[in-house]
């Protein structure tokens, strides 16, 4: 079966005008063997080297492997206890989901039922997620923070030089556009944050928009400008404060709900912005947490500092 001429022409045009067809093939073939050769040479010894070394190192590695094995075993045993596929009393058929849909609005008060579930009915779960964000950011800071022990004078000089170059190359176009767009993006992020109980959105979505806006700000105006309002102190206050606020609210709700006490936080009228009790402050707390984490990841991976 021979390809028609026009098809061959089109193919050649798509792959670039070069008349010699074997060239792209050779280009594709080349990286494969190189990768195969490099992979064992690079990975094998480096793993062995970290496993070898001192006895302490070997112990750490063994402990890590043991932890991983225990966790894998736990997960697999949990899988064995999962209900069978298509059983009559599986999650979609049982009474929990019906209660979420039928009484979620009057019990929790948010018109967005998904927010009801993730922030109140399953608020403890989401609290765990926020803790994961907190721990992730903390671990990144511990590993990547540039201090006296892991940066030489040379690294610091290189960073300063690149900062100076950035300052020189500070882009007029990006700066102007960011000046125009920054308030709009921040406003949009806050809107999504504060409307999480009324419409799709909420803490995680709004927080990532805010974090993206901060990153854009850093790119357009330089790290120093962002540091003027978002330094270590502000960062720690927001991060710890938001997590504590969330913890207090969720503990209060669980305590009140479990003991059948009257909930003192008013639910308000469903549909208005100040309604749904604890959902609005929790959304704001989660959003601030997410924004801080995103920006911290970005700057710590890039500069090793806020």
């Amino acid at each position: 079966m021979k390809k028609p001429l026009w098809y061959e022409k089109l193919e050649r045009w798509v792959e670039g005008d070069s008349p010699a067809l074997p060239e792209p093939l050779a280009h594709v073939e080349n990286p494969e063997p190189v990768k195969e050769e490099e992979a064992p040479v690079q990975h094998g010894p480096s793993l062995l080297r970290s496993a070898g070394g001192t006895a302490m190192n070997r112990l750490t590695t063994a402990f890590g492997i043991l932890c991983c094995a225990i966790f894998a075993l736990l997960m697999l045993t949990t899988v064995a206890y999962l209900p069978r596929f298509g059983d009559a009393d599986n999650a979609p058929e049982n009474e929990t989901s019906r209660r979420y849909i039928e009484q979620g609005l009057e019990e929790v008060g948010a018109t967005n039922l998904v927010t009801n579930i993730i922030l109140v009915y399953r608020g403890f779960d989401t609290y765990g997620e926020s803790c994961v964000l907190f721990l992730g950011a903390t671990a990144v800071i511990m590993l990547l923070e540039a201090d006296r022990k892991n940066t030489s004078q040379k690294d610091r000089l290189a960073l300063r030089r690149s900062d100076a170059l950035d300052e020189e190359e500070r882009n007029q176009i990006l700066g102007h556009i960011t000046t125009v767009l920054m308030p709009v993006i921040f406003l949009y992020g806050l809107y999504i944050l504060c409307n999480g109980h009324l419409s799709p959105g909420g803490g995680f979505a709004g927080g990532s928009i805010l974090g993206g806006a901060l990153i854009l700000c850093e790119n357009a105006f330089g790290a120093r400008r962002v540091q003027s309002f978002f330094n270590h102190k502000v960062y720690h206050i927001i991060k710890v404060g938001a997590l504590i606020l969330y913890a207090v609210l969720i503990c209060y709700t669980i305590y009140v709900g479990a003991n059948g006490l009257p909930n003192l936080i008013p639910l308000g009228t469903p549909g208005s912005i100040l309604s749904a009790g604890i959902i609005l402050p929790i959304n704001v707390a989660v959003g601030l947490e997410v924004a801080c984490t995103m920006y911290a990841f970005y700057t710590y991976f890039g500069r090793g500092d806020l």
Binding site: E169, N171, I173, L174, I177, V180, L181, V184
Partner: peptide, 20 residues
């Protein structure tokens, strides 16, 4: 409007980084 403001700028930045 948002698209027209942002995407030419990002294109410009990518080319600038490549040239630098």
């Amino acid at each position: 409007a948002f698209q027209w403001l942002t995407s030419p700028v990002s294109t410009h930045r990518i080319s600038k980084v490549e040239i630098l």
